[in-house]
């Protein structure tokens, strides 16, 4: 009787979709465990456990461990709180790294966003099968492993045997120190990052463009709206959430970039292209100061986390408004 009541309750709650036949064969022993297993939330938690364990082991634990490391002294024998961060802030070399990281990330994201936006519009206008072909081709830079493609770029910029310089020399233009002079080297690392990241923006924007209802454009056309007005009052507002989240995601990834700078310049010349990750590697791994390396790599975390909170809150608010 008791079993039937439980089964009916669960069925009424929508937890049991199948027939009641198995319940009638239930043994009264171990009922507590079975009841636990039959509760929807319990099953959900159990099914999520592997994922939670993975996130806990591979994301949360390393992140917290990095925070802990960043608060130890050089020999990792004493807790120094925020001492490493304060020390870094007073170092001219690190102040330069902050500036360079901001220049690198902001300019790369701006160019990636602009080029991605332009490419998405161009692709959107290409009809049918050709669009798929172009989309595939334009995605290639993003698909190739970054370390490999950066090596290719390094060969193009190679100080002594640069293919770019060879072409320039053919036309009588003197060689450009692509990796050897401060601003050229900064330009080179940003260029490669833009080349790599623009397809990601393109594909995100293209997806957003495809989701804009065609009727809006038709209505706007009837009202006499031109191309600029359609972009300004329909496309951009409709893409705003995707734009925000793509820029935020890209900003975080670009600030954390390592491969491009490490392979192209290793931070040179004269440390003028170091960004957080490469400088953290030099200080932490190569120079044997792991807490300082951890502090460098975590430096942008609060700022980016705060930015993420604001951007995501804006997205949630706009989504709620649209739903309402």
């Amino acid at each position: 009787m008791e079993e039937r009541r439980v089964a009916e309750t669960l069925r009424a709650a929508g937890a049991v979709a199948a027939s009641s036949a198995p319940w009638s064969r239930m043994s009264p022993r171990g009922g507590g465990l079975r009841r636990f297993a039959r509760r929807r939330s319990s099953v959900a938690v159990l099914l999520c456990l592997p994922l939670l364990a993975l996130i806990g082991g591979l994301v949360l634990y390393p992140a917290l461990y990095a925070v802990w490391l960043a608060m130890l002294n050089k020999h990792m024998t004493r807790f120094v709180g925020l001492g490493n961060f304060l020390f870094l802030l007073h170092r001219p070399a690190f102040q330069a790294v902050i500036l360079q990281s901001v220049i690198f990330a902001v300019s790369a994201v701006v160019f990636k966003a602009l080029i991605g936006f332009l490419l998405a519009h161009l692709l959107h206008a290409v009809p049918g099968r050709s669009q798929r072909v172009w989309r595939g081709l334009l995605l290639l830079p993003w698909v190739i492993p970054l370390a490999m493609s950066t090596l290719g770029w390094w060969w193009l910029f190679d100080p002594s045997y640069s293919a770019f310089n060879w072409v320039l020399n053919v036309f009588g233009v003197p060689s450009v120190p692509g990796l050897g002079a401060t601003w050229w080297a900064r330009f080179s690392v940003i260029l490669v990052n833009v080349w790599y990241g623009a397809p990601f923006f393109m594909i995100m924007y293209l997806a957003a463009l495809k989701s804009v209802p065609e009727q809006l454009y038709e209505a706007a056309a009837i009202d006499g709206a031109g191309a600029w007005a359609r972009l300004r009052y329909i496309t951009l507002p409709m893409m705003r959430n995707i734009l925000s989240i793509t820029i935020l995601f890209s900003l975080i990834v670009t600030f954390a970039n390592f491969d491009i700078v490490r392979i192209l310049t290793a931070g040179g010349p004269q440390d003028q292209t170091h960004i957080f990750a490469t400088y953290a590697f030099v200080a932490g791994i190569q120079s044997g100061d792991i807490p300082l390396g951890a502090a460098i790599s975590l430096f942008m975390l609060p700022i980016l986390a705060l930015g993420a909170v604001f951007v995501l809150r804006g997205i949630t608010r706009r989504s709620a408004e649209q739903a309402g």
Binding site: S160, G180, P269
Partner: peptide, 21 residues
């Protein structure tokens, strides 16, 4: 020295010798 030595890595000098430059 060659003007680009500021951006040489550990392989650049080897290549400079091997290439005969």
């Amino acid at each position: 020295l060659p003007p680009d030595v500021y951006s040489w890595d550990d392989a650049s000098n080897n290549r400079a010798l091997i290439s005969g430059k």
